[in-house]
Design a protein around this nucleic acid. Structure first.
Length: 410
RNA sequence: GCCAGGGUGGGGUAGUUGGUCAUCCUAGGGGACUGUGGAUCCCCCGACCCGGGUUCGAGUCUCGGCCCUGGCCCCA
C-alpha cells in the first residue's frame, strides 16, 4: 500500500474542523489589529533562502531543478518570501505595512513531536516602521493571538544589543559560538570554552547577563548603550500594558538578520520542541535588492499550538438527517433546499433503504430526523423528530426550519 | 546524520520454549425490519510493514530497509 511521505500528515474532518477553528481565531485577531492577509508562492528560487542563511540550509530543504534548469526550493519559512514580495511590489504602498499569512512550509528534517516536514505557520510582518511602539505592538499581538488559542505559554523577550555590547570587538565566528552557548543556557559549556582563552571575566559577565531578569541590573552589567533609551521605552510600554513576560537577554535567535528586539514564546506542556513562536526586529529587504527597511514580525508554529491544545472533543454541529420513501423524494429535495438555505447542515439519505434503516443510520449522528414520504409529500408538511427527546411532530416547512434553528446541537 | 523503543484487519488488541483455519473488541457494509431510533441477534468485509537469512516449519529467531514514537544534532 502506498504511504504518505515521511513527516506529513492526513487530517480527517474532526481534526480539520478544529484546525480551521483555531486558524480562524488567529486571522480574526490579526484582522482586528489591521493586519491583512497576503500569499506568496509555495516554491521560490533557491537563492532567496541561501542568500541570507547560507548554503548550509540546502540540505534541510526540499530543493529541485525545474524543467528550465532553475534551482527551486519549497519555502522553509515565510519571512524571506514576504520581504521579497515587499521589495517586488510593496515598496510604494503607504507605510507601515501590516501583513499576515497562514501557510504551509517544508523542511527536510527528522520528524519528531511537534516537528513535521510539512507544517503550517501563522505569522505577521510589520514593515517600514522602526519604533519601540511597533515592537511592542508585535509582541502584544502575539500574546493576544496565542491567548485566543487557549494554550498556556510564557513569553521571553530580549534585545541583541545587550549581548553585542559585551562581545563587540570579538571575531564574528567567536561571537556566534558564544551566542550558541548562551541561547541554550549552557553555562558550563561556555566556561569550558572561554576559560582556556583566559576569558573568565567575560564568561562571568555573560553568564550574569543571560540570567538577568531585571532591566536596571542589565545595564549595570553592560554599561550605558546607545540603544538604552529605546529598550527602556519598549519595556516600559510592555509593563504598562500588563502582559506577563520574562526579560531574557540570553536569546540569540539563530541567524544574523535580527537587529534588535527578539522574542520567543514557549508552550508549557510540550517536550523538546516547545517553542511555539519566534520573532523580532530585523532588516532583510536590502538583501533582496530593496532599500534598507526596518521591519519586525513573528511566526507561530501552528502545529505545535495544536499539539499543545491536545485532544479536544470535536465541536458539535447541528445536523438534520432526511429519511424519505420513493414517493417523498421530490418533496425531500425541496425540504433539503429550504433547510440548507437556512444554514442548517442537512444530509439526505441516499441509500433507498427502509425507513427504519434510514432512521437508525440518521440517529447515530444527527439531532433531528425529517421523515418525508407519501403522506408528507401530499400535504406539503414535514414530520420532524427530535432525536434527543424522541418527540415527533408534523409541521409546515417554515415551522420545521424554525424549530431546528432554535435548538442547540447535542 | 546519530541513539532508544516500537510496527498483527480502518482503530485498539491476544498470540507461550518457533508448530492446526491467528484471538477478541470496535468501526464499516448487509440482513432480521418497505412509515419510525442508537439496543439485540445473524452474516460479511478485513491484518502478521517490506525483503533476505536460519529452520522440516517464522507473527515469533536473525540481518538489512521502510515507517511510527520519543530523544540528540539542527532549528531560518
Amino acid at each position: 500500500m502506498l504511504q504518505k511521505p515521511r513527516g506529513t500528515r492526513d487530517f480527517l474532518p474532526d481534526e480539520m474542523e478544529q484546525r480551521r477553528d483555531i486558524e480562524g481565531r488567529m486571522r480574526e485577531i490579526g484582522r482586528r489589529w489591521g493586519y491583512r492577509e497576503i500569499c506568496t508562492p509555495e516554491f521560490e528560487e533557491l537563492e532567496l533562502f541561501t542568500v541570507r542563511s547560507g548554503e548550509g540550509i540546502i540540505q534541510e530543504m526540499y530543493v529541485f531543478e525545474d524543467k528550465g534548469g532553475r534551482m527551486m526550493a519549497l519555502r522553509p519559512e515565510l519571512t524571506a518570501p514576504v520581504l521579497r514580495m515587499y521589495v517586488n511590489e510593496g515598496r510604494t504602498l503607504p507605510k507601515p505595512l501590516r501583513w499576515y499569512y497562514f501557510a504551509d512550509c517544508f523542511r527536510y528534517e527528522r520528524p519528531q513531536k511537534g516537528r513535521y516536514r510539512q507544517f503550517w505557520q501563522f505569522g505577521v510582518e510589520l514593515i517600514g516602521v522602526d519604533s519601540a511602539l511597533a515592537e511592542a505592538e508585535v509582541i502584544l499581538l502575539a500574546e493576544e493571538i496565542l491567548s485566543a488559542t487557549g494554550i498556556s505559554f510564557s513569553i521571553h523577550i530580549g534585545h541583541l544589543a545587550l549581548m553585542r555590547s559585551i562581545l563587540s570587538g570579538m571575531p564574528e565566528q567567536e561571537q556566534k559560538k558564544i551566542r550558541m552557548f548562551l541561547d541554550k543556557k549552557d553555562f558550563a559549556g561556555l566556561r569550558d570554552y572561554l576559560s582556556p582563552k583566559g576569558m573568565d571575566d567575560l564568561c562571568t559577565s555573560l553568564t550574569r547577563l543571560a540570567s538577568c531578569r531585571d532591566l536596571q541590573e542589565v545595564f549595570e552589567i553592560t554599561g550605558d548603550l546607545p540603544e538604552r533609551e529605546r529598550i527602556e521605552e519598549l519595556f516600559s510600554i510592555l509593563d504598562h500594558s500588563g502582559i506577563p513576560y520574562t526579560l531574557d537577554p540570553g536569546i540569540a535567535r539563530g541567524l544574523d538578520y535580527y537587529t534588535g528586539m527578539v522574542f520567543e514564546i514557549f508552550a508549557e506542556n510540550l517536550g523538546t520542541e516547545n517553542q511555539v513562536l519566534g520573532g523580532g526586529t530585523y532588516r532583510l529587504a536590502h538583501l533582496f535588492g530593496g532599500e534598507d527597511t526596518p521591519s519586525c514580525g513573528f511566526a507561530i508554529g501552528f502545529d505545535r499550538v495544536m499539539v499543545s491544545r491536545g485532544e479536544q472533543a470535536p465541536p458539535r454541529r447541528l445536523v438534520a438527517g432526511i429519511a424519505h420513501t420513493p414517493e417523498g423524494r421530490e418533496w425531500a429535495l425541496a425540504v433539503s433546499r429550504e433547510f440548507r438555505s437556512a444554514g442548517i447542515r442537512t444530509e439526505l439519505d441516499l441509500s433507498g433503504r427502509s425507513l427504519g434503516q434510514q432512521l437508525s443510520h440518521i440517529a447515530k449522528s444527527a439531532d433531528y430526523a425529517l421523515i418525508l414520504g407519501q403522506r408528507e409529500s401530499t400535504s406539503r408538511v414535514v414530520t420532524i423528530k427530535d432525536l434527543r427527546s424522541g418527540v415527533q411532530k408534523e409541521l409546515a416547512l417554515p415551522d420545521a426550519v424554525r424549530e431546528v434553528i432554535r435548538s442547540e446541537p447535542r
